[in-house]
């Protein structure tokens, strides 16, 4: 049973972690994230890096779609902008990676704002389709602007650099990705403690009333687009550093859908939801791979079915969560927590 919940100051009441227990848990989580690479197998390390990148991008999409209510089918395109920016900078300059990632995020944010411009006039699904059009254009640019993007062959990167240190393996990449992911999550969490986050949610819930209550719609919609594509751009940049190659096919439309699926499964409009969704959806394919490897000795055809089965599983997850658990894994998590808060009493 959770007790001792009374606060003596508003600051204590508005803190991110309102009890010592929560602070201790968070400390432990950070500690285990720090120690993880020293004990993890190369495979787990690789997975952790993937999860980190997915968490950043999913959080970005969640800000736009989950919190501001603007559906985007362009997330992969924005990641592509980030990825190509980092790749180009790595080939033509020797900038340290934080600068390159910042540039990736900013360029992506700028393009995001341009694409968000129609959002004042068009809403809902029309907007989703406008973002789809935008991602078609971006894909076209990636393919056709060969002098910069390397065309269909794409670009190969050099390893990320900082103060003469190169990030050439997963172990080092982990220490680049994970702190950034934690930092960007905290920043996203902070946004929703302030007026800006409240304005986003207000626009999602009732845009017209929000405007009458003093929120300039276009400015905040663009801000949401910019923020979301900044996250996507940084994630795309990390993606480029991680795989050290980017091609137009690195950022397909299915990737945009993957991220939409992640925030639906995790929980739209919940930072925790975005995180859980990103972790879950990154691990599902890996789980399937494990399953396939296990079955192959008995049924040699299994690997052929791996990739289509993945599509089916993704689809079933999306549909299933929407129908049966529309608030996603975040709601499941809350339910578990509530159980322990009340334990040993029952609800």
């Amino acid at each position: 049973m959770r007790i001792g919940d009374a606060k003596q100051s508003y600051a204590a009441d508005e803190a991110l972690w309102t009890s010592t227990t929560q602070q201790v848990w968070f400390g432990l989580l950070l500690l285990s994230l720090l120690l993880f690479p020293f004990f993890a197998s190369p495979y787990l390390l690789y997975l952790a890096c993937l999860v980190g990148i997915a968490v950043i991008s999913a959080t970005g999409l969640n800000i736009l779609t989950g919190f501001t209510g603007l559906i985007s089918l362009g997330q992969a395109g924005f990641m592509g902008v980030g990825g190509y920016t980092v790749a180009w900078l790595s080939l033509h300059t020797s900038l340290p990676f934080p600068i390159a990632l910042l540039a990736a995020g900013l360029l992506s944010a700028a393009i995001g704002m341009v694409i968000g411009l129609p959002s004042l006039r068009i809403k809902g699904l029309y907007l989703a389709i406008a973002t789809l059009a935008a991602s078609v254009f971006l894909h076209f640019v990636f393919v056709e602007w060969a002098s910069v993007t390397g065309g269909m062959a794409g670009l190969s990167l050099r390893s990320a650099q900082l103060f003469g240190l190169t990030f050439h393996n997963d172990f080092r990449m982990y220490f680049m990705i994970m702190p950034l992911a934690v930092l960007m999550l905290l920043a996203a969490r902070n946004i929703f403690r302030t007026r800006i986050g409240r304005a986003f949610i207000a626009i999602r819930d009732r845009d017209i009333s929000a405007e009458i209550l003093g929120i300039p719609l276009l400015r905040y919609k663009l801000l949401s687009f910019a923020l979301s594509s900044f996250y996507a751009g940084v994630a795309g940049g990390l993606f480029a550093y991680f795989y050290r190659v980017v091609t137009p096919e690195s950022f397909p439309l299915s990737m945009s859908i993957f991220y939409l699926a992640a925030i639906i499964v995790g929980g739209m409009g919940s930072i925790l939801g975005g995180v859980l969704g990103a972790i879950f959806m990154t691990l599902v394919p890996e789980g399937l791979k494990l399953l396939t490897t296990a079955i192959t000795p008995i049924y040699p055809q299994a690997p052929v079915f791996m990739s289509p089965l993945l599509g089916v599983v993704f689809g079933v997850l999306i549909v299933g969560f929407l129908i049966f658990e529309p608030n996603g894994l975040a709601e499941v998590w809350r339910r578990i927590r509530r159980f322990f808060h009340l334990w040993p009493f029952r609800t």
Partner: peptide
């Protein structure tokens, strides 16, 4: 009665299922 976004996502999910099944 759910939001149009959710319903659209259901059809996107359906598309993913159908493509996978066709491939299988």
């Amino acid at each position: 009665g759910e939001s149009p976004i959710s319903v659209v996502m259901v059809t996107i999910g359906l598309a993913s299922i159908l493509v996978g099944m066709a491939e299988i």
